[in-house]
Amino acid sequence: MSSSESATGKLKARRRFLNALLGASTAAWLVSVFYPITKYLIPPESAESNVSSVKVGKKSDFKRDSGTIFKFGRKPGILLHTSEGDFRAFYATCTHLQCTVQYRQDFGMIWCACHNGKYDLNGVNVSGPPPRPLEPLQVTIKGDEIFVSVQA
């Protein structure tokens, strides 16, 4: 084998290696691009970006003269079923120091355990420290189901 032949053989081998390397790194690069994109395309568990409306449950789930805390997006809400049969909902965050309020059947009022703040069934602060009424939410009843949404 002459020296020039071996040189061209070496050159060929080098070129083949370079092409293979180029192919491999391109493939790796494509993976590094498509991996995040594919991940991005898979919808996350909570497939909605924001909560403007929540299905709280069925009418029959809530006894009269009771209140239920539910999750409204990232804030707690309270759904009241009054003795008269009305459904009302408010953000359940006390306007005094942001404790979560509850319904007190014995008073027939919304009550904050932290400092004995009381709100009437319209969410109006009637006694104790709360400086403002509770922020109201909208209740919509479709058939038997209760939906709560932000007030328009």
């Binding site: 994109i37 991005y40 919808p43 996350p44 909570s46 909605e48 970006s49 924001n50």
Partner: peptide
Amino acid sequence: QFITSEVEF
């Protein structure tokens, strides 16, 4: 906010 916090990447 949802895109930056919930969606992967």
